[in-house]
């Protein structure tokens, strides 16, 4: 399946890291790449996040959103900084959500996916939820604005 990363509208060449399915990876947890089903416990990866360089999360259907929670736990809770890839039912209209949850590469068959990826971060200039992507929320910006206003007074 074509692989996309931010910075290129055309599919990119894979890094060459071959992810092991979770059950196989458990037998050799020093392997740097793993692929999880959306029912696999991400908590089990925590002690090995230093050696992991690629984690692939699966969307059996685009409407099955369990991998969003897995991604946020990996990024926001456990501080994972390696590659995080979405695969399976991955469509361009999910991109604003996927990016906010910490995914940075995407396998998708959808036509126009690369172009959509280039636009995805600018679709919404406002966010309401504090998540690990570091974007300031509307509430935080309102507070800042108030403080600046107060300093000016």
């Amino acid at each position: 399946m074509p692989l996309y990363k931010e910075g290129s509208t055309a599919p990119v060449v894979d890094t060459g890291l071959v992810p092991l399915a979770f059950a196989d990876w458990l037998k050799e947890p020093e392997h740097p790449a793993v692929s999880l089903a959306n029912t696999d416990p991400v908590e089990a990866l925590e002690p090995h996040l230093g050696t992991l360089r690629l984690i692939v999360l699966h969307f059996p259907k685009f409407s099955d959103g369990r991998a969003y929670s897995q991604a946020r736990l990996l990024r926001d809770r456990f501080g994972y900084r390696g590659a995080l890839r979405a695969t399976g039912g991955v469509l361009q209209d999910q991109l604003p959500f996927l990016l906010r949850c910490g995914f940075d590469s995407f396998e998708s068959e959808q036509k126009g996916f690369g172009d959509a990826l280039a636009r995805a971060r600018t679709l919404f200039s406002v966010v309401y939820q504090p998540v690990g992507d570091g974007r300031a929320t509307a509430s935080q910006l309102r507070l800042q604005r108030r403080n600046v206003g107060m300093a000016a007074d």
Partner: peptide
């Protein structure tokens, strides 16, 4: 506000 376009809970 919190629930509007929540990235984790839209599916």
């Amino acid at each position: 506000q919190w629930s509007t376009l929540h990235p984790e809970f839209s599916f």
